[in-house]
Amino acid sequence: MSASDILTLALGAALGGFVNGLAGFGTALFALGFYLTIMPPKQAVAVVVVCSVVVGAQGLWVVRHAIFARPARLMRFLVPGLFGIPLGLWILSMIEPRGLKIFIAAMLIIYGGYFSLRRSLPTFDRPTPFADAVVGALGGVLGGAAALSGALPTIWCSMRPWPKAETRAVLQPFNFAVLLITAVMLALDGVYTRHTLTFVAVALPSAILAGQVGFAVFRVIPDLAFRRLLIVLCLVSGTILLLRELI
Rank of each mutant, 00 (worst) to 15 (best):
F115S: 06
S158W: 14
A131Q: 06
L11S: 04
P71E: 04
S93C: 05
A46G: 07
A146K: 03
Y111T: 13
P41H: 15
G144A: 13
F215Y: 06
A133R: 08
I208A: 08
A147Q: 15
G33V: 09
V55H: 06
R219W: 03
V55Q: 06
V63S: 11
S4M: 05
I109R: 12
P97D: 09
F77L: 02
V220Q: 00
S237I: 00
F25P: 00
L100S: 07
Q212T: 07
Y114T: 01
A177L: 06
W90L: 12
D189Y: 10
L224W: 11
L209I: 09
K101M: 10
R76V: 02
A3D: 14
F226P: 12
I95Q: 13
I91D: 12
S52N: 06
L78D: 13
I231Y: 00
A3H: 09
P40H: 05
L29W: 11
P80T: 07
G150R: 05
R219G: 01
Y114D: 04
D223A: 09
A203C: 12
G136K: 00
V47G: 11
V53D: 13
V178H: 12
I6R: 06
R228C: 03
Y111G: 07
A131G: 13
A146C: 04
V45H: 15
E96T: 15
V220G: 00
V170C: 14
V63E: 08
D132A: 02
V217R: 05
V50R: 00
V141H: 10
L180C: 08
V48P: 08
V50F: 01
Y35C: 14
L242G: 06
R73L: 10
I181S: 09
L209F: 13
S158P: 00
V170W: 03
P86E: 06
P173F: 05
D223Y: 06
P222S: 09
A201L: 01
R228N: 02
K42D: 14
F25R: 10
A147W: 15
T193Q: 04
V213R: 02
L7T: 10
R194H: 07
F25L: 09
L148V: 10
L87C: 10
K42C: 08
S158K: 03
P86K: 11
L241Y: 10
T128Q: 03
Q58S: 13
G99M: 11
F176N: 03
R219C: 14
P86R: 12
A201M: 03
A169L: 08
T154Q: 00
R118T: 06
I95A: 11
L148C: 05
V135M: 00
M185T: 12
I110D: 07
F218T: 14
A10E: 06
F176S: 00
G33L: 05
S4F: 05
T167I: 15
Y114A: 01
K164D: 11
P41C: 14
L108K: 02
G56V: 08
